[in-house]
Design a protein around this nucleic acid. Sequence first.
DNA 1: GCTAAGTGGAAGCTCGCCCTCCGCTTGTCT
DNA 2: AGACAAGCGGAGGGCGAGCTTCCACTTAGC
Lengths: 173, 173
Amino acid sequence: MRADAQRNRDRILSAAAEVVAELGAEAPMETIARRANVGVGTLYRRFPDRAALLDALAREHAECLLDAFGQGPRGWKTLRGWIEWSVEHGRGALAIALADVPVDDLPEFVRLRERIAAELDAQVAAAHAEGGLRAEVSADDLSQVLKAYSCHPMTLPSHLLPLLLDGMAPPTP
Amino acid sequence: MRADAQRNRDRILSAAAEVVAELGAEAPMETIARRANVGVGTLYRRFPDRAALLDALAREHAECLLDAFGQGPRGWKTLRGWIEWSVEHGRGALAIALADVPVDDLPEFVRLRERIAAELDAQVAAAHAEGGLRAEVSADDLSQVLKAYSCHPMTLPSHLLPLLLDGMAPPTP
DNA sequence: GCTAAGTGGAAGCTCGCCCTCCGCTTGTCT
DNA sequence: AGACAAGCGGAGGGCGAGCTTCCACTTAGC
């Protein structure tokens, strides 16, 4: 692969991560191309369609997203930290992982989803067990919160997230 | 106005309220028409464009939305009650009041927006003063929460709203 | 220098939605 | 009952946003 091609490929991937973080997983391809200072043609030669681009992004970001859980004990504290970190730093990757995009033949994508779902389940179970998280909050709810913040970032002010998370702790009457 | 025309007009308005509550203020006109068991033609004869329809809805629902504040004292308790009530029962009207729709020549619409904004400001000020609401939560934030729940109802599970509101009360360490 | 790889962006296409139009139906009045 | 204005439905033309292709031009690499 020629050096300039490689450079453009990288530029496209990071532009895509940015744009997806801002606009959600259905951001126009043209916006991504322009952000990368590249014509749409270039984008399409490198990634035959949106799904391929998202898959490449998943491959790129999966590790750092999952590493962010750290090695600490499972529980509400860790989980909460991860949620806040992800919304702050991992929006692009999350948007990809959680977007409503049909995905069956995109292996990396499927894997990322499964791993996130599994880890989320485990953390929620631990949080419930230790009593750090209200019983009425499910892993599904959290995944929807993550999705709302990452796929539709304009809909809720991000400084309200900590308050929502506060509200998820058991009431202290 | 002929009797059947009147009937259809009413059907359209309530279908619109439903659909807007479900899909947001940009719901396709055709969806509204179908829900009302009416052709698009009928819809358009009665309301020359989407703006006119929304304006009529605003006229229809403004009072009940504002009445829901009740006569009680201003403060967090009242405000919170209103927010929950509105999201539960007033989504259609709210979606209209808060949607990002240019609106300058739709008097009823403008009036509704202003009255809601004013009441919200007053309630938030009172809530801050009595110490029922964290200082970092502004009237704008609340209006954005209302908008998220009413204009994009699919993005957040509605049973999380009470938790978010819990989190808005001052922390009790 | 030569050439194959790479590039940008105009152009064509699809799709979803907006709104108009007109032949048919129906309420209303005599 | 009959006439006729009012009302109706939904096919269809138009439009804009976004996807994808294509090809004349540029450039890295030998």
